[in-house]
Design a binder for these strands. Structure first.
Length: 297
DNA sequence: CTCACATCCTGGATGC
DNA sequence: TGCATCCAGGATGTGA
């Protein structure tokens, strides 16, 4: 489930293969992703150079020499893999020969970028919840996919005051509020659970309770912002999380899943120092929530 | 406007 | 062993 740390890990893996390189050929094997790729999708990429590869929330943004931006989203099961022409990986490693042994064209490799760097970049997405879209750079501010996104959680602008203001008067749970990309952009089910545990806040707590009536932050808002930033930084440093067969662009596994404190750990002892609680699983808004009822209040 | 819930999709896990 | 059913969840659309 690619959330911000997994998308950022992807971005860093793609950068050496794509930045400064030209699309020599783009193959669309299946264009019916979350929404259909535009008919001129390949034509608008071929011959263009990637001048920069950025990220906004869970979106990857490739700046093109044409003045367009290629917007990419991994959805639930999307991933990018980088192959070098000679069959080696960009970093010269061969992680368990995992990808070397794979056939050239795997099932669910829906889009393939052939780059002038010699790299082949494949977009693989079994469930096809991911998608891509090309828009003009000077229209990016009006782009519906990006326009309503909240602040970047690792940016300086994201602080307790900002989060409290966004949660002011919200009758919904903290869990639901943090999952809302308009409140803060980039968290998903896993990191919301992990951030709430670090902040020792119950996922069931009313979102409005991190602010006073005027929308000013209280101590809970401070703890929550610290928890969000810390878990995202730790996860990025660990190369993201690998659940099921999700891997990094070089085929290596992220390591953060081994450091989950509550996610998918129902019945385990709460890892909070001195806490004697047990991790519980509940369902909120149709999604699993994992938390410790003892230390998360 | 806010909030809860259904929907899209597939592979893997589980149940009988 | 096979076959049916459930479950995972990001973003969006619908309806209360």
């Amino acid at each position: 489930m690619p959330e911000l740390p997994e998308v950022e890990t992807m971005r860093r893996g793609l950068e050496p293969a794509m930045e400064g390189a030209r699309f020599t050929k783009v193959d669309v094997h299946r264009g019916d992703l979350r929404w259909p790729l535009a008919k001129d999708f390949a034509r608008r990429l071929e011959g263009r150079t990637v001048t920069g590869l950025g990220r906004r929330a869970k979106y990857l943004l490739a700046d093109l020499s044409s003045g367009d931006v290629l917007i990419m989203h991994l959805g639930m099961s999307g991933s990018f893999h980088v192959f070098q022409k000679n069959g080696d990986h960009a970093d010269g490693q061969s992680p368990g020969n995992y990808y070397h042994r794979r056939s050239q064209h795997l099932a669910h490799d829906h889009v393939v970028f052939h780059m002038s760097s010699g790299a082949t970049v494949t977009f693989n997405d079994p469930r096809r919840f991911g998608s891509m879209k090309i828009v003009a750079r000077d229209k990016l501010d009006e782009e519906p996919l990006l326009r309503r996104l909240g602040p970047e959680p690792l940016g300086n602008a994201f602080d307790a005051a900002m989060l409290a203001r966004a949660c002011k008067g919200k009758k919904t749970s903290l869990k639901a509020a943090l999952s809302d990309q308009r409140v803060v952009a980039g968290l998903g089910n896993i990191y919301v659970c992990e951030a709430l545990h670090r902040a020792r806040l119950s996922p069931k707590r009313l979102a409005a309770s991190i602010a006073d009536k005027t929308g000013a932050p209280n101590e809970r808002a401070e703890r929550l912002v610290a928890g969000i930033k810390a878990v995202l930084e730790d996860a990025i440093e660990a190369g993201g999380s690998s659940l099921r067969d999700h891997r990094r662009t070089d085929g290596e596994l992220g390591m953060f899943q081994h450091r989950f404190r509550v996610y998918d750990r129902e019945g385990a002892k709460c890892p909070t120092l001195g806490c004697r609680g047990t991790v519980r699983r509940i369902v909120q808004n149709g999604r699993s929530t994992f938390y410790c009822p003892l230390c998360q209040k």
